[in-house]
Design a binder for these strands. Structure first.
Length: 779
DNA sequence: CAGTGAGCGAGCTTCCGCTTGACTT
């Protein structure tokens, strides 16, 4: 029995704090929220001032009963959940759910886990801030109302099992909008002109000086005209300008910036970053990884300073405090940093080491001095033209924080701003031209989102929280609204004009462009759902919706507005939109008429069906004529899109299944199924590989595939037994196994499948029943 | 494991944020 029970949110935090507080204190954790709204009937009494009905979350029952028992025994219960809206609500739910006596309950907060911060907190307890709790209740109830009223509209008007929500629907909208921008983008081209001069360096050796013309030309003819003018020209250094510049380090990591940098520098997915960070946190190596704060504790700043002085010298140290700029930040924690700033590396698996190193470098760099640079711009005049060539260089005079860390950008074209040292040249030097190249360059389409750049965008808009960025991205993919994938680029031609020895040579070259790696693409269903929501629910689909309601929550937290009134104001127009949409709106299936089939004269259309996107030939019979044929249907193939498929592509799909002829008196046909293209013969299926296609494969090629499959099938059966025809020893993808009554059984290691007797097989079947599929019942 | 796409109706789906393990193919 202990006098003091302290309750925090995270078990790892509990362990640390217990060490600081000594034996009079027992520190336990609530594992986050312990109660939530009931699932049935919204969990909210809408008629009665939105009165919430809370219930203990099923997976928290054990935690709650343990805390209840411990809190009865304790003299004082300290509620030490985080100092933000959700943390305050957790404290209040604990008070209610544990039936705590208010007189023996204290609310304390700290936002760094250091001994002094915690002792200070214990000295300054306060009451639960009910206004802040009410702001959280408003947030929770609003999200429930939006999610549970709009989702059922989608079930009725689009497809069952779909979902909508304040956060996920806007996240999908960002991706859909961007996809449309990409689809509508047409590249324009211009001509970029680069010159190469030869200059003597200090040792009299010839070195190259690159310079770009201060003008781009709209077309080939203008570029050509310019090069014509360069014939016989002289090139003179008009001017050299040197300017000092400085660069400052980025602030230490928040959840969002850690996810972005780990993606760019280490190639981690957002979810991967969080799970590696979680392990580092639990091992006590970094501070809490779900935070929106860039703040560092004074302890951290001091140890960083000592480390920098020791490692690099005093002139590399500069103490900085950063201010959080992101919208809606609640700053309950510190920035993400090493627990012990003096440790530049940790033990553990490779991923943990790499992520830790990144965090260490970023944190240390944030306490280092600016880098001092010198930028040089050289203007080179052309005797026959008013244009100028410009060469620029940048040298680092003092590296400062660059010694340990350089922040990456999403812009892949940005790589040429590195450290370039110009050769020694003086004003009025005459330069020797080597060559000039005018190359056609295309404008770039807007970039599709990566997981990390989507997180960045969401944070900028104040949508979602550090604990939800990773789950949001998983959700919109699980719902089938968005896919993350690679897409091949295309090849295009571009023109280059090369000026060498007063001659102009024109060439057509090829380049690849538009290759996408691990980008987020909307699916057809994602686009249909998005368009439906934008059309009918402009209120919640507005990118500023979250920011607007956050303002209201802040006012509730200040005690200036009653949360029930805020919800009332929101709910009335919102609910009306729900009702109207249910009543007026047509079913949304993204239907498009593509044209008419020239052979039958019937209309060809495309839409989302029960099993995904499909093309349809003919109309569903609303005529009384029984002779009306049913329409034909065919699924869209991978790579085809509802919005872009053409009549020709659609008509191709109806060519399947294709009759190829007969083999061994049985029909042979080719088609595409759920598992890709296949040949059908004698009710057996053979996959068509990538080398051929069901549209073009010949009978002979098909027969070859059929025979190959037969041969393989013969080899697949290792052994059969006459006494037990249901029992067979087969050769599968993962080696030999026993098949009996449609169930499969593993053969123990070290047993030769060839030598198995019927008795052996029966024994294996008895001893090791096939693992059943993990079907779990839901309550 | 590969021909789905009619229509009816029962019973189900769904949100966001706070936290970790317990689960396997």
């Amino acid at each position: 029995m202990v006098d003091n029970l302290v309750i925090v949110e995270s078990p790892a935090k509990a362990k640390t704090i217990e060490k600081f507080l000594g034996k009079d204190y027992l520190v336990k954790s609530s594992f986050g929220h312990i109660r939530d709204l009931e699932k049935k009937e919204f969990g909210v009494d809408i008629e009665n001032d939105f009165k919430p009905r809370y219930t203990i979350s099923p997976d928290k029952k054990a935690v709650v009963s343990e805390l209840k028992k411990l809190s009865k025994e304790a003299k004082t219960v300290w509620l030490a959940s985080d100092e933000d809206r959700e943390g305050e609500a957790i404290a209040w739910h604990l008070l209610e759910a544990l039936n705590l006596d208010e007189d023996k309950t204290r609310r304390i907060v700290f936002h760094e886990i250091t001994k002094t911060a915690i002792q200070e907190a214990i000295k300054n307890p306060r009451k639960i801030d009910k206004n802040l709790v009410n702001a959280q209740q408003a947030r929770r109830i609003l999200d429930r109302l939006v999610g549970f009223e709009v989702s059922p509209v989608l079930w009725k008007k689009v497809k069952p099992q779909l979902s909508a929500g304040r956060v996920q629907s806007v996240a999908v909208r960002l991706i859909v909008d961007r996809e449309r921008e990409v689809m509508n983008f047409t590249a324009t081209s211009s001509y970029r002109v680069n010159a190469l001069f030869m200059v003597d360096d200090e040792n009299g050796k010839k070195v190259a000086l690159k310079a770009e013309l201060n003008k781009r030309f709209d077309n080939r003819d203008e570029a050509f005209k310019f090069l014509e003018k360069c014939k016989g020209a002289n090139y003179l250094v008009d001017d050299i300008v040197k300017k000092p510049a400085k660069r400052s380090p980025a602030p230490p990591f928040t959840t969002s910036t850690l996810q972005q940098e780990a993606s760019r520098k280490l190639g981690f997915s957002v979810a991967q970053t969080m799970s590696v960070a979680q392990r580092l946190y639990e091992a006590g190596k970094i501070t809490y990884m779900r935070t929106d704060s860039v703040n560092l504790s004074s302890l951290a700043i001091n140890t960083a300073k000592a480390k920098i002085n020791d490692f690099f010298g005093e002139k590399y140290s500069k103490t900085r405090q950063f201010k959080t700029s992101s919208k809606g930040a609640q700053e309950a924690h510190e920035a993400i940093r090493p627990t012990y700033m003096e440790n530049e590396s940790v033990s553990g698996i490779k991923q943990e080491q790499r992520l830790y190193e990144l965090i260490w470098k970023r944190s240390i760099a944030s306490q280092m001095s600016d880098a001092q640079l010198e930028k040089t711009t050289v203007n080179i005049g052309i005797s026959t033209s008013n244009e100028k060539f410009i060469a620029s260089g940048e040298i680092v005079k003092f590296d400062g924080f660059l010694k340990v860390y350089f922040e990456s950008t999403d812009d892949e074209d940005d790589k040429n701003n590195g450290d370039t040292l110009l050769p020694p040249i003086q004003k009025n030097d005459s330069l020797l031209l080597d060559s000039i190249v005018a190359a056609q360059r295309f404008s770039q389409r807007p970039p599709r989102y990566t997981e990390a750049s989507l997180v960045k965008k969401l944070e900028e808009q104040g949508i979602g929280r550090p604990s939800t960025y990773a789950p949001i991205i998983t959700t919109i993919q699980n719902r089938g609204y968005v896919v993350k994938e690679d897409r091949p680029g295309a090849e295009r031609e571009f023109v280059t004009l090369t000026f060498l020895n007063d001659q102009i040579k024109e060439q057509i070259q090829k380049e690849n462009f538009g290759y996408e790696r691990s980008k987020l693409f909307p699916t057809d269903i994602g686009m249909v759902v998005n368009d439906f929501l934008v059309k009918n629910f402009d209120l919640i689909m507005d990118f500023n919706f979250t920011a607007k309601v956050e303002e209201q929550f802040d006012i509730i937290a200040e005690g200036k507005v009653k949360w029930e009134n805020m919800l009332k104001d929101f709910y009335k127009p919102f609910h009306q939109q729900v009702e109207e949409t249910l009543e007026i709106s047509e079913k949304a299936n993204g239907e498009r008429i593509l044209g008419t089939d020239p052979q039958t004269g019937k209309p060809v259309s495309v839409k989302i069906g029960r099993y995904g996107p499909l093309v349809q030939l003919g109309e569903t019979g609303d005529s009384d004529n029984d002779n009306d044929e049913k329409p034909r249907f065919a699924s869209l193939q991978p790579g085809m899109r509802l919005e872009t498929i053409t009549l020709e592509e659609a008509l191709d799909l109806f060519k399947l299944p294709r009759d190829l002829g007969e083999y061994e008196d049985k029909k042979v046909s080719a088609a595409i199924g759920r598992f890709g293209p296949y040949i059908r013969h004698d009710n057996k299926f053979v996959s068509i590989g990538k080398d051929s296609s069901p549209f073009s494969i010949t009978l002979d090629e098909a027969i070859e595939l059929i025979e190959a499959k037969k041969e393989k099938d013969r080899k697949a059966v290792i052994k059969t037994f006459d006494e037990e025809p249901e029992l067979r020893v087969l050769n599968g993808r993962w080696g030999p196994y026993i098949s009996f009554n449609k169930k499969n059984y593993k053969i123990p290691k070290g047993t030769e499948a060839e030598n198995l007797s019927l008795e052996d097989c029966r024994k294996i079947i008895e001893e090791g029943p096939a693992p059943k599929k993990g079907k779990r019942k839901k309550k």
